[in-house]
Design a protein around this nucleic acid. Sequence first.
DNA 1: GTCTATACACTGATAGAC
DNA 2: GTCTATCAGTGTATAGAC
Lengths: 190, 190
Amino acid sequence: MYSEAMATQDRLIETTQELLWERGYVGTSPKAIQQRAGVGQGSMYHHFTGKSDLAAAALSRSAQQLRAQAEQQLAGPGTAYERIAAYLLRDREVLRGCRIGRMAQDPDVIAEAELRRPVEETFDWLCGRIAEIVAEGQADGEFATGPDPADIAAAVVAVLQGGYVLARAADSPEPFHQAVRGALALLRNR
Amino acid sequence: MYSEAMATQDRLIETTQELLWERGYVGTSPKAIQQRAGVGQGSMYHHFTGKSDLAAAALSRSAQQLRAQAEQQLAGPGTAYERIAAYLLRDREVLRGCRIGRMAQDPDVIAEAELRRPVEETFDWLCGRIAEIVAEGQADGEFATGPDPADIAAAVVAVLQGGYVLARAADSPEPFHQAVRGALALLRNR
DNA sequence: GTCTATACACTGATAGAC
DNA sequence: GTCTATCAGTGTATAGAC
C-alpha cells in the first residue's frame, strides 16, 4: 500500500487545491497544475479524466478539511457565544480568503453541478451547525428568543465570507477584523 | 457632440461591465467583449490600450453607479436603523452578486493597482458612510454606545457581501435574505 | 504509469491597409 | 476610426510509444 500512483494522485490533488484557492477554477490550467506538482501531462490524464474531474476531487477534500477545522472551535467548551466567538476569532490567513467561499464567484463552478455540490454542502452544514448552537443559546436564556436561529447563523457565516471580500479589496486584514468585532458586539448579551 | 466614437467607447465599457460581472477579469477576453459589443478588433484597440485599460474604465463606472445607488437608501428619511434596513432590504439581483465585491476574488485585479483602486475606494466609502449613520444612531440613543461604529459598519457591509456568496453557493437567493434578516435582528433596538 | 507528439481553438496583442 | 492579417503563446485535451 501507499503505492507511487497514490502519491502522484495526492500531489495532483493538493496542488489543485492550492491553485484553486489562489486563482479560482477559470484561472487554473491543467498545465499550471502539472508544472507545480512536478507531474507530466500523460500522468495527470492517466489519473484524472480532465480539469473538472481533478477540481472535483480537490474541492471535496478542501470541503472536508474546512468542516473538520470549524468543528474544532464549534464543538469546544464554553457557552454558545463563546463557541461562536472562538470560531470567528480563530487564526486565519485572511488575505488568502476562503478556499470554499471563493468558488462561489466562479461561473464555471456554479454552472457544473459536480463542482458546486461540495461548496453548497459545506455552507449548508456550517450554517446548520451554527444554528444549532444559537438555538442552544436561546434555550439557555443566553440569547433573545425572537430571531430564527438560522437567520443569525447565516449572518455569522456571511460576516466571515464578506470580511474576506473587504480584506482583499483593502489589501489588508483589518476590515475583516472590524467586521468580526462588529458582529460579536451585536451578538453579545442577546 | 455625442459622436459615433463616443457611442462605440460607451458600448465597449458597458459590455465590459457586464462581462466582468458575469465572468470576472480572468474569465473575460477581449474577443468576448468585441463580439458582445458588436465592435471590431481594431476598433477596440483604437479606443483602449488593452484589456486592463478597458477593465479600469468599466470598474470606475460600476463603482460610481454602486455609490449613487447606495446613497439613495442611505440618505433617505428615517432613523439610523431604518436607513440601514432600507439599504439592506433594497431589491437586488442576488444571484448575480455584487459587481464590485466580485472583483476582490480576482487575483489579477488585486495584483494590479489600477484595477484594485476602484474596488478599495468603493468599500472605503461605503463602510465610512454607514459608520456615520451608526454614529448618528448612537448619538441619538438609538444604538448602544459601546461598539466602534466602524466595526458595526464593516459587519453590515460584510453581511451583504457574504450573503451573495451564500446565495450563489446555494444557487438560491434565500441564504442572502436569511443573513440580512439575521443582521437586522441583531441590530434592532441596540 | 509516464513520456512525447500532435491538434485545434482561443488569448492578447501589433501592423498596416483603407 | 475601422478592417483584416498575422503572431507567439496558452488551454485542454487525445494518441500512441515505452
